[in-house]
């Protein structure tokens, strides 16, 4: 009676195969890219975070050293910046308090990544980098040039910093530089 009107719902085998093939290709590509992306993302993120932390730390230290002043007896002026493996200290002029006060940077080396913190005068200690420091060395570099007259001094702080992410086996982010406090040097040379 109505046999010619019957539709058959369903997929043919060909259709399914084609769809599977296409979607498989698609999904495979997508997954591969995704994995790559995720890896790349986490790597970039780690590097980016480490880079930002080191940049902020160096900028903070640079600003502090730009504000560094000579204070105390003039015989000690060449030892104004004191650097020990775990501590860096010097004096700055704080316009907020209108006086010269000490600034101390503390480095605590820990097996899973060290910690870097800063303290100004009697205020609380603020952590700058937490658990990311693979190694840190800072060294006061005092140069003396034999220029006519009594010679010229130049003080710099050589920093070698390596940061690494908490987990992962990537290479650590390393930065090595020397910071020269210009105003301090100018004062030193005009004594």
């Amino acid at each position: 009676m109505k046999t010619s009107e019957r539709r058959v719902t369903g997929f043919t085998l060909t259709e399914i195969l084609v769809v599977c093939a296409v979607s498989a290709t698609f999904l495979a590509t997508a997954i591969m890219l995704f994995t790559n992306f995720r890896q790349g993302y986490s790597r970039s993120e780690n590097v980016a975070v480490l880079m930002q932390e080191s940049a902020l730390f160096l900028a903070r230290l640079r600003t502090d050293l730009n504000n560094a002043v000579l204070s105390g007896p003039s015989a000690d002026f060449l030892r104004q910046i004191q650097a020990a493996p775990d501590q860096l200290s010097f004096n700055v002029y704080s316009s907020r308090h209108g006086r010269i006060q000490p600034v101390v940077y503390n480095y605590a080396a820990l097996p899973d990544g060290g910690r870097l913190s800063r303290r100004e005068a009697n205020e609380g200690e603020r952590v700058l980098i937490k658990d990311h420091v693979a190694s840190l060395t800072w060294q006061v570099q005092l140069e003396r040039f034999a220029t006519p007259g009594s010679g010229t001094f130049r003080i710099g702080l050589a920093i070698d910093l390596q940061l690494k992410a908490s987990l992962g086996k990537e290479k650590p982010f390393a930065i090595k530089t020397t910071i020269f406090p210009a105003r301090l040097n100018r004062q030193l040379n005009s004594r």
């Binding site: 997508a30 992306f37 993302y41 970039s44 993120e45 980016a48 880079m51 930002q52 940049a55 902020l56 900028a59 640079r62 730009n66």
Partner: peptide, 30 residues
């Protein structure tokens, strides 16, 4: 969905970049 993911990655990287730029600009301003 994928576009949103890409954009967020891009903006994160861009954010990293501009964060660095601010520090750099600060030094030039100094």
């Amino acid at each position: 969905v994928l576009l949103i993911l890409a954009v967020s990655l891009y903006s994160f990287v861009g954010h990293q970049h501009s964060g660095m730029q601010t520090i750099v600009n600060g030094e030039v301003a100094h």
